[in-house]
Amino acid sequence: MTAKPKRYFAAVLFIIAAATLFLASAATADVLLYDGKPYLHVIHEGRSIKIQRIQDPGYELKGYFAKTARKCPPFCIQPITVDPAVRTIGEIELFHFMENDLREGRGVLIDARTPSWHRKGTIPGSVNYPFTLFTQDENAGERDAILREFGAKPRQQPGLLEKTMQELGLSDKRYLTDRWDFTEAKTLVVWCNGPACGQSPRAIEGLISAGYPADKIFYYRGGMQMWQLWGLTTVIPES
């Protein structure tokens, strides 16, 4: 073989390899999170986790979260709205939350299920705060600690000047309660097992009765069931 045909042969091989690689990479990006977004990264327990959808078009959800029927009560279909002032969100809004509020430390993604559920697998970036922390009086100490962690500040008795200003409507008291100042409080996204799960609605109701501003709380109703139905990445918590 002369040098020229050898060069052609190598070039053809190179083109075939490049085309294969291109097709392969195109194939792996077929199932996007949403248009133009193949994946995103979140930090979970100190590790960076890539969130993407399962690319196998033949994949079918199996197991517990594929079931259509569970005893009701307690596993009843939940209303779309937990509280008129709390916004219910879907996956796209959750992706945006992960990439903005969560990444910048302005938000907390709350897995409101009891620890035994959480241990079975969770949405990356979530922290487990079981709903019982917000609903049971015996957990008042823990609840106060968590509220501080979420950025709420315990409030002193307002001074005369502050009281007068509030009464005259000259200061913003939207995020103030008798006990807490929620002005700097983080945005929360609360979720549980899915549309038939009452754990996150309970957590949200508990947070609201503790004074947490409803406009800083979001309800991801789809929960673990919808997350898995879309073939999105889940993680097994280490702690």
């Binding site: 197991g63 517990y64 307690p74 009891t114 559920w117 697998g121 097994i236």
Partner: peptide, 15 residues
């Protein structure tokens, strides 16, 4: 009831 239900979830590799 929800604690009893968790046992029905597919076993995963637990540490």
């Amino acid at each position: 009831e929800i604690t009893a239900e968790v046992d029905k979830v597919d076993a995963v590799t637990e540490y």
